[in-house]
Design a protein around this nucleic acid. Structure first.
Lengths: 229, 229
DNA sequence: GATCCCGAAAGATATAGACATAAAGCGTAA
DNA sequence: TTACGCTTTATGTCTATATCTTTCGGGATC
């Protein structure tokens, strides 16, 4: 095959990183580029489309393509299941169910999960261990109106996260990261000191507009989430 | 136009989310799908390729395409410039340079940035304010061997981040998120109590294999990073 | 039974050509 | 001057076809 879209993409990217195509500058149109690379327009199109997806260039019909003034820096972050995350560290994973109770949703949770007045939730507390040491504390609420099956299910052996991804895969979610000070309970579970700075993730999950679950994941001291771009 | 790749993608996704194509199941090949949708193979290919990029399905030559057993959940996270971040919150941004000094790199930093023995670095400390209140504390080291211009530049008015993205756009980076306890200095700058749990980001940036800069960004109490997927 | 090699299947990509769609910019009318 | 609408142009997408590449699985060989 003559010129591949990867070669075109790499070449354009090289010109941009070397400053031959400075930020803000306009690029030739697809027809001209195709001619100069000696390939089909579709080939150039794919290269340019990917560069646009990567946030390097900006494309607008009729206006043409230009190098972004401020390239969009973004990372693609995997959301792993905690068991896999631990085993990828080369450690042994252990799960324990701490508590599991169906109850009416407290007000703050009703607001968070957009629940109706009398919706009931299943409140689960779990611990995840890596090589026997506390790794993550999970505090989860499942909307029983959306997922009544959850009430019958036994979470002693398999964590709610794994059950959820097998029961309702392909959901939408909102995630947030922040830092919290360990309260007495969490300090106890995670084997740290009250007041320690801990990394916490919150996640709300929907399926077709209905809130399925809200979870707070608190990690052991020193936990880091790392990404490349 | 007859059948678009978006329609094909949406239709396949619908079948998957509705359970008509359960996780692990094999899908027809592109030729057959194209025939059943009454469109060209390239159209189906694009739909399937995007689903594969989204982590919904898994494709292998000869083996065919199947729905992923555990769909890969990932988010795409923007890495904003702090000034933009603050202005998008509807607040007024203010920047202040606290300290700027060229010095030999301490050992821990040499290791982090993969510096040579006698490389010098520019050490900057800055503060970023939102509506007058402390928002972010920036502790940055710039590799002067890679970017000698930095030593001459005046960072009193424009933050080093903005200068860097305009001077060396299109770099590679590694980011990590974690929680730290505020020490006396940081507590002072961020107007919080010593020991408070704070969200911190670390970022190392490379250009063509050379480390350009390492930065620690510590956010005010309660800061959250939020993402959708 | 284990290993290597080869054919075939399916996805990955290139091409040429056509039509669709958005929007920039100009010309005209109010 | 402003507002509206048309033309033009660049990107967006579809089609039909061909070739390339990876890899599964079977058959020959050791």
């Amino acid at each position: 095959m003559s010129v591949t879209y990867r070669e075109v993409k790499a070449d354009i990217l090289r010109q941009i990183t070397r400053g031959q195509l400075p930020p803000g500058s306009a690029m030739p149109n697809e027809v001209d580029l195709a001619a100069s690379y000696g390939c089909a327009r579709a080939t150039v199109n794919r290269a340019m489309r990917e560069l646009a997806d990567d946030g390097i260039i900006e494309r607008r019909r009729k206006a043409g393509t230009r190098v972004r003034q401020n390239p969009i820096r973004h990372v693609r972050m995997n959301i792993p299941i905690v068991g896999q995350e631990i085993e990828e560290l080369g450690a042994t994973y252990r799960y324990a169910l701490v508590q599991c109770k169906a109850e009416p949703a407290p007000n703050w949770l009703r607001a968070r999960m957009a629940l109706k007045r009398d919706d009931r939730v299943l409140h689960l507390t779990c611990m995840h261990y890596a090589d026997g040491a506390p790794y993550q504390h999970e505090d989860r609420w499942i909307n029983l109106s959306a997922l009544p099956d959850a009430e019958q299910h036994d979470f002693s052996d398999v964590g709610p996260n794994e059950w959820l991804v097998s029961t309702v895969p392909f959901t939408d979610a909102q995630i947030s990261f922040h830092a919290v000070a360990a309260d007495a309970t969490i300090a106890d579970y995670l084997d740290c000191t009250e007041g320690d700075a801990l990394f916490q993730t919150e996640r709300t999950t929907w399926l077709e507009g209905r809130t399925i679950t809200f979870v707070q994941l608190t990690y052991r001291r020193g936990h880091r989430v790392t990404m490349q771009y």
